[in-house]
Amino acid sequence: MAAPMELFCWSGGWGLPSVDLDSLAVLTYARFTGAPLKVHKISNPWRSPSGTLPALRTSHGEVISAPHKIITHLRKEKYNADYDLSARQGADTLAFMSLLEEKLLPVLIHTFWIDAKNYVEVTRKWYAEAMPFPLNFFLPGRMQRQHIERLQLLCGEHRPENEEELEKELYQDARECLTLLSQRLGSQKFFFGDAPASLDAFVFSHLVLLLQVKLPSGKLQAHLRGLHNLCAYCTHILSLYFPWDGAEVLPPRQTPLGPETEEEPYRRRTQVLSVLVGLAAMLGYALLSGIVSIQRATPARTPGPGALSMAEEEEEE
């Protein structure tokens, strides 16, 4: 019997099944098609077989990391949400996918990773609390730099040099994109009628992050919340396809009250190793900087009652 397909994705938070846009898109598509996946929701990308999230390990052991490649593989495995679409609807899917990437994705990156207030109070806060030590000290900053580079690629050579002009242009394009999506959806349940397609998975993942997260600087949220059909659309998908984990919030470094899960032994080993690495680093720094020095005790000297052994001295330092 072939091994089950395994999906590794970012954990949930902010009332969502995952905090990551790409992970949300793949998770939603899998739910739409009923693909039998063993899902690992984690907050340490180094535990992924590819070192990135999301990632899919196929039944044959192959590892796929790009979201569109994961969805392509699911289609090859006969889990195709676009099976009943017409050629016209297929063309519309490509057009709207391009619209999302050009007009809405840049603003999402700016909102969560560039806007200083949102990044410090929401984005970095979640990742720093969710990630294990010592990754939480440097990985959120590295992720921010990667998103800045991605935004630069999306904007391309037409990017205004003035940051205020860039921000104004990005948000204007995003508002127009949201309005167009609202008009296209109309009163339908999904973009192509009563059944969801791959376009719905991507639109939902883009919109629900913006809709659900409480942002101190939510410049686009007010416009989205004024488009009631898009809000109802997100709420409908969240309640229908994620009824038990739509409100999932990752409790960082919290001891479970029930029996130990299969992830718990790994988590405990990771915590112990992290603490040991941290202690070793501090001890090495102390020795190199001269805060702690090792001296050979002379045989003639007898330690007094208040003297410390070397081990005790190192512990205190």
Rank of each mutant, 00 (worst) to 15 (best):
L287T: 00
L7N: 07
G90A: 10
E260P: 05
D245W: 05
S239D: 13
A197V: 02
G90P: 03
H110P: 03
E6M: 10
L21P: 01
Y127A: 02
I237A: 06
E263A: 15
S205W: 05
D82V: 07
L53W: 03
N80V: 05
Y285E: 08
A201P: 01
E312H: 05
L276H: 05
Y241K: 04
I64M: 05
K168V: 09
L94V: 14
I70Y: 02
H228L: 14
W14T: 03
Q146N: 14
N118C: 07
Q144V: 05
K103I: 04
W126F: 14
I294A: 09
N80E: 10
D194Q: 15
E6V: 12
A2L: 10
A3C: 12
Y285I: 11
A300F: 09
R253V: 06
E262T: 08
R88L: 14
L99K: 09
T235E: 13
H40C: 06
V107F: 03
M310N: 10
I291C: 09
A130Y: 00
P216R: 07
L227M: 09
F190P: 00
R269G: 08
S187N: 14
L24R: 04
R253Q: 12
M131D: 02
A195R: 14
L181P: 01
W126E: 04
L276A: 14
K41M: 08
I237G: 01
E262C: 11
E165D: 12
L207V: 04
A222W: 07
H68R: 12
Y266I: 13
A130T: 03
M97E: 12
H236S: 15
S18R: 01
S182V: 10
L288A: 14
A307F: 09
A247C: 14
I148Q: 07
A95V: 15
H206L: 04
K41A: 05
S50Y: 02
L180P: 04
P134S: 11
V26G: 01
E248K: 07
V39G: 02
F96T: 13
D200S: 10
H228P: 06
L135Q: 13
P140C: 14
S43A: 15
F8V: 01
E263R: 11
T298I: 05
L227I: 09
F190G: 00
K214L: 04
K219C: 00
G258E: 12
A2T: 15
V203N: 04
S274T: 00
P36V: 07
Y285A: 12
L227E: 07
T123M: 01
G15M: 01
L99Y: 05
R269H: 14
I291F: 11
T93A: 04
L180Y: 13
P243T: 11
V107L: 03
I294F: 12
L178Y: 01
Q221M: 01
L178I: 02
L166F: 03
W244L: 13
L151R: 02
E260T: 11
G156M: 09
H147N: 15
A66S: 12
K103Q: 10
T52G: 04
L279V: 13
I294N: 06
K125R: 14
P17L: 01
H40L: 04
P4S: 13
Q295I: 03
T123S: 13
R296Y: 08
Q152N: 15
P45I: 07
T93H: 10
R269M: 07
L288E: 11
I148H: 11
W126Q: 02
S239I: 05
L273G: 06
G218M: 05
V277T: 12
D22S: 11
